[in-house]
Design a binder for these strands. Structure first.
Length: 332
DNA sequence: CGTCCACGTCTAC
DNA sequence: TAGACCTGGACGG
């Protein structure tokens, strides 16, 4: 499933668990996982935490009950492929396709944190570094992300339709098939316009982001957008997002100047254009395509847009944590 | 039963 | 720039 936001949620999930839970023993690899390396790690007690960058996630294990200077540690870099996820379950309910397993100690019930990946397209590398061929994270390194695109528009990577260029992880690390479709849809850019042409029109520094930083008004802008944005359910989402649909439906556009997108077959998902124009006027600063590469993933993660999403507050109390754990034993 | 489809890379021609 | 790499769910006959 995983695009940038899901990797980020997975990292938060792992870290939240790691703050409460002691792990111990070996890191176990499933017998069927032959392409991925063994993880040489066997400590009586260790901690886990994780962080993510685009479509990569790093798990760090450190020896002992608390992180001590000079203590042994090891990091594992994951790419999730099409179906990777982390799950936290009782050992007695070890998920099918759990290809790498971290076992707890001292929990009421023995628990296991697993990298689950039924298609096995996912990869991990021991002590792997962030992919040198992958760009900055649009959520957490927005300025760097934007410059990386704007300063490289001359490259042949931008010689292609914007919808293809947006899957290039060298520039759009964390953007996948679903996000690129949603982003294009939201900013009314025709998917098959040349990337260079679309992007050359943008400012090197985001007007939207400047406004965001300066004024605390931002919330209002975001709110306004939220009000008339249609929350597309995952199922409906798939409808729009299929490549074929993109081709067939988004290609027809009439009033380019006003960014009016006519999508004919995407019945349930048409945002009324009137509403759109209105919002553009009211909010003055309309997020551009690159802004949306920042905003949309952020919304998915639940940092914006009304407190939806998993509440993985590391400082939550035990009760909240228990509830959270029951609710979300899986984050993709 | 069968065919198609899936939030992603990889590498071989 | 096609396949290859995988499992399994949805849906058709």
């Amino acid at each position: 499933m995983p695009e940038g936001p899901e990797l980020h949620l997975a990292a938060k999930f792992i870290t939240a668990i790691g703050q409460r839970t002691l792990f111990g023993g070996q890191v176990v690899k499933s017998a069927v996982s032959t392409k991925n390396p063994d993880v040489e790690w066997n400590k009586e007690v260790y901690r886990v935490r994780a962080n993510s960058r685009g479509k990569e996630l790093k798990v760090v294990v450190t020896e002992g009950e608390s992180e001590v200077k000079g203590g042994a540690s090891l990091s594992i870099l994951f790419r999730f492929g099409m179906s990777g996820s982390f799950k936290y379950t009782p050992v007695s309910e070890l998920p099918k396709h759990a290809h790498l397993q971290f076992y707890t100690i001292n929990e009421p019930i023995p628990m296991v944190l697993s990298f689950v990946d039924y298609r096995r397209f996912g990869r991990w590398e021991v002590e792997g570094e962030w992919g040198a061929d992958r760009g900055p994270d649009p959520i957490w390194e927005y300025q760097a992300f934007r410059s990386n695109v704007m300063e490289n528009l001359k490259l042949s990577a931008f010689n292609r339709p914007i919808c293809e260029a947006m899957l290039n992880q060298k520039f759009f690390n964390g953007i996948g098939n679903y996000l690129r479709a949603e982003i294009l849809y939201r900013c009314g850019v025709r998917p098959f316009d040349e990337a260079r042409e679309v992007l050359s029109e943008l400012k090197p520094f985001s007007k939207w982001y400047e406004t965001q930083v300066k004024q605390e008004d931002v919330k209002n802008i975001v709110k306004q957008e939220d009000v008339q944005k249609i929350v597309v359910k995952q199922e409906d989402n798939k409808e729009i997002v299929k490549q074929e649909d993109v081709k067939e439906n988004i290609v027809k556009q009439e009033d380019v100047k006003e960014n009016i997108v006519k999508q004919e077959d995407v019945k349930e998902n048409i945002v009324k254009q009137e509403g759109n124009k209105k919002s553009v006027k009211e909010s003055k600063v309309k997020p551009d395509l690159l802004d949306l590469c920042h905003i949309l993933p952020k919304e998915v993660v639940g940092l914006e847009g009304g407190g939806k999403g998993y509440n993985v507050d590391p400082d939550a109390n035990e009760e909240e944590y228990a509830a959270f754990r029951m609710q979300v034993q899986e984050i993709r």
